[in-house]
Nucleic acid binder design. Sequence first.
DNA 1: TTCAGAGTGTAACAACTGTTACACTTTTAT
DNA 2: ATAAAAGTGTAACAGTTGTTACACTCTGAA
Lengths: 222, 222
Amino acid sequence: MKKVDLADCPVCSKLEIDDEGAFLDDLKCSIKVYPKNELIIRQGDLCDALYLLTNGSVKTEMITENGNVLGIEIIKAPRPLAPAFVFSENNRLPVDVTALEEVEIMKIPKAEIMRLMTTNPDFMSSFMTHNANRTQFLINRLQLLSIKTIKGKVAHFLLEQVIDSKKSFSINRNQTELADFFGVARPSLARSLSEMVGDNIIAINKKEYTVLNSKGLRELLV
Amino acid sequence: MKKVDLADCPVCSKLEIDDEGAFLDDLKCSIKVYPKNELIIRQGDLCDALYLLTNGSVKTEMITENGNVLGIEIIKAPRPLAPAFVFSENNRLPVDVTALEEVEIMKIPKAEIMRLMTTNPDFMSSFMTHNANRTQFLINRLQLLSIKTIKGKVAHFLLEQVIDSKKSFSINRNQTELADFFGVARPSLARSLSEMVGDNIIAINKKEYTVLNSKGLRELLV
DNA sequence: TTCAGAGTGTAACAACTGTTACACTTTTAT
DNA sequence: ATAAAAGTGTAACAGTTGTTACACTCTGAA
């Protein structure tokens, strides 16, 4: 497991940690390691601390009432997990968190977070910004789910990945996970994808996706 | 327009305002009144301040890329509007906000919010809690949208309204707005509703909904 | 009161998606 | 290297939803 620098963490970067060891001692936090595929957090668990993913990567997903799985996101260290819920009134986590590889998680008590927030305005500010970005992410997720056709969802998703006109990129989800992410059935997604390939709108090679006809893609949104 | 007490506001209640007039002067905020049906905030507008709904009620909705409307929520004063986005990196508001009646909105500059956050831990705490609750709301919205059948969505929604075994309640949305809320077409929703009424699972009288067979409702979730 | 507009019920049809099933390929673990 | 597991492509069919269209009811304003 490679060492991750806390300075890269969106909420911890402003902590100006001179001596990370001393800081961590001071913080009264605990660190725990989970093996690959372990269920780290269960939907409904109480959230009385901030979970900081310090090493590895995890996926979060919701189990809906009808038993279906809705993939939410894939998180890479260093980043906090569901930071907003430390402060919620019903502080139960709404998602399952599963280790995608061996991961290390730091648990910081709520009281410590409160202390950091009040004593360190920079920490507070970046914590707020991070939460705001998470909200934006959820809104975007909402928008994706509200698109009614599968091809529309795929188009929305792929167009989002096109950065600086780079038409090729790799998606770190297999087809089953992608179907969960879109909230659709796997064979239905496969059908839509293969039709889009047949229409020369996109090309797929394993997890490498290429946009061949972005005008055509955009038309699928309508 | 009836007077609303800021003490009822989820984020302002902890401000311990002795003299509201003096407090507001001090806060360097501005107040604006909008007539019924006015579009107060446009999707994509920059958000450089905290908008506080001090009187009246508004609805928020997203216009999706395919031109469809996705209803998000109905907000009654006093409550902040999209508080999270003041701190986001891309601080553009993702929703349209429309006045449902004559409303009064207080605009508090970001700098003032920062000042309140750092000087008033109680304010900060309730601000955080409120944001967390909003996140929970969005997650719930996500869950609703991920349900694949319309009857399932209706069941989820109605079962949520059953509080303390009260099987009757009124929904403050008409059928068109409800369809937008679920992200489905209006005639499709009407069909599903009328089938559920025909099966004696629910009864509808104008905006008054009654759950007749909650076991049957729950089965629609599966 | 009356009329215009908004909201609702419903139908027929097309389009899309889910389900189930199975063969095939790729990856992973031993 | 090999078997087991995971992932993918595809087909047929049923089921659900969207679209469009129109008649009807209700509401609020003049």
